[in-house]
Design a binder for these strands. Structure first.
Lengths: 194, 194
DNA sequence: CACTCAAGGCTAATGACGCTAGCTTTTAGC
DNA sequence: GCTAAAAGCTAGCGTCATTAGCCTTGAGTG
């Protein structure tokens, strides 16, 4: 019986690929083991439990998502940055629905949980992007929450196929981002004081 | 052994109450049976499987949600209807997170699935409400999808505790609804033609 | 008032799955 | 080559969904 050359990272990566195919809820240790050419109990040499594995997938997902948003918004500002970041996130969720589901299902286990900074990086990207709109500071947290809600809501609804006509979902997304952009621009402080 | 007076409806209702307490993912037939003072296999006299039970909860949830939105928007129009409907939905999800999760997890099983009209009623309420803004007809589908995305996204993020500071979540929600309302009003057809 | 029989409850058993225990083999380091 | 930790495997346990088959209840009928 030759060694399979596994480790926590490669097992997590394989599990992430698997959940993107079969859905996060359908993850099973047996399926993953089969995919890796190994018997189920062998996986426990690399991950402590299925729960820990799910958590690792979540951290991976949030890290990748943060990278995708950062890369997309690099060198852009304002409306351009919003559009690029939003589309990057949408693409990531569509390409990696299982990972993203894992990321949403995970709760931080403590203060030194790597999930915390991973999620923090995503939020920091959005916050930086929103700064370009020069909102009233009181409103930034509200705008951030709105942005998260819209992007998360759209992505998850699309991922589970909740939008009827598949035709113009791209149009809807672009329209929506334009809508938010216009609204944010209308809230520039100098205008808000009027 | 006296009869428990169960039926598909009462079992579904009990299961819905249970998932609101323990979370949709933690639903188990054993727990539900215990709650109903019955042994696990007895439940199968009333529901075909756990999957069917989950589906029944989903239909119940979407029906209740549609009712809540309809009741809240009764006799209101425009901004008032939007605010009332949105708050009603948020309240429903916060009070019944397990049911709502079931509703999102469910996929229609066929054309005569009662889930289809139940979801349809929710969408019809939003559509009717959006009519009050007299949008360009091309934009209605986009606005509907945006509204669903925002409300679904906010509700789910809040339900799983993804918003850090619990203090002003109410404020954020109200601000967000105001933001959408302003944007929709700005898209009145006569102005859009300018 | 008995009688019947479907409905609804129960026990026992099966199969899937997460996980652990304990054994064996590989392989890196000396 | 030797050693020992790492990594694989087989067996087995506990939980849970589900099924099979039995027994009691109780509503409707004569």
């Amino acid at each position: 019986m030759p060694r399979a050359g596994l480790g926590p990272a490669s097992v997590t990566e394989a599990a992430a690929a698997l959940v993107d195919e079969i859905g996060f809820d359908n993850l099973s240790m047996g399926l993953l083991a089969e995919r890796l050419g190994v018997k189920t109990p062998s996986l426990y040499k690399h991950v402590a439990s299925q729960a820990e594995l799910a958590h690792r997938i979540a951290v991976l997902a949030m890290t990748e998502l943060a990278d995708a948003i950062r890369d997309a918004t690099q060198g852009r500002a304002g409306s351009d940055a919003l559009a690029a970041g939003a589309h990057a996130m949408r693409r990531y969720v569509l390409e990696h629905p299982g990972r993203y589901a894992a990321g949403n299902a995970a709760r931080p286990t403590g203060p030194d949980d790597p999930l915390v900074p991973a999620v923090g990086r995503v939020l920091a990207s959005w916050t930086a992007m929103l700064h370009g709109y020069r909102l009233n500071p009181d409103q930034e947290i509200h705008a951030l929450r709105m942005l998260r809600s819209i992007l998360h809501g759209f992505a998850t609804l699309e991922a589970i196929g909740s939008f009827q006509i598949n035709a113009d979902i791209d149009d809807s997304f672009t329209w929506m981002i334009g809508f938010i952009d216009q609204g944010l621009k209308a809230k520039l402080p100098n205008l808000a004081h009027a």
